[in-house]
């Protein structure tokens, strides 16, 4: 994990392993303290980034190649803009199907809620594929 930190921009990267979720939590707590964000805003960002990172690590990246996932957070007025990049297989979370939350329990698939929660806890999500990388930009109003 590396960390570069300025007044308005904080960047770090995590190894492609789910055990890194604890570090994600630590990093976001630090971001929250530095930018004086509410506990709720930090929790919401944590959940959104957790779900994206879990998807990327579970399905996207090449574990043999020890690929990392990079995070860049910018504090712009009343918004935090977060750019998450990885070199894994193309994956566009903005085109993932919506779960059907009102299904009876027997028809409810186990799983598939991660991207839904990511959408719920952010205000905008954009995806682009650039230089063999997935680049997801999330906006969180604070």
């Amino acid at each position: 994990m590396t960390l570069i930190s300025g007044d308005k921009r904080i960047t770090f990267s995590l190894a492609g392993a789910l055990s890194e979720l604890d570090r994600l939590n630590e990093m976001l707590k630090m971001v929250g303290e530095r930018w004086n964000l509410s506990e709720k805003a930090v929790l919401h960002m944590n959940l959104a980034l957790d779900e994206l990172f879990t998807n990327v690590v579970s399905y996207g990246i090449d574990h043999q190649a020890h690929q990392e996932v990079s995070f860049s957070l910018d504090h712009c007025g009343d918004e935090i803009i977060i750019v998450v990049a990885d070199s894994g297989k193309p994956f566009d979370p903005t085109h993932a199907p919506e779960p059907e939350l009102d299904l009876p329990i027997d028809d409810q698939p186990v799983g598939g809620l991660g991207i839904f929660l990511m959408r719920q806890y952010t205000d905008n999500i954009e995806y682009r594929r650039e230089n063999e990388k997935n680049i997801v930009t999330l906006t969180k109003k604070i």
Binding site: L47, D50, E51, T54, V110, L113
Partner: peptide, 16 residues
């Protein structure tokens, strides 16, 4: 103190 969809998944699986 925190739950993600992975935790929800375990709960749903247990309910079923």
């Amino acid at each position: 103190e925190y739950i993600s969809s992975a935790g929800l998944r375990v709960v749903l699986k247990t309910v079923k």
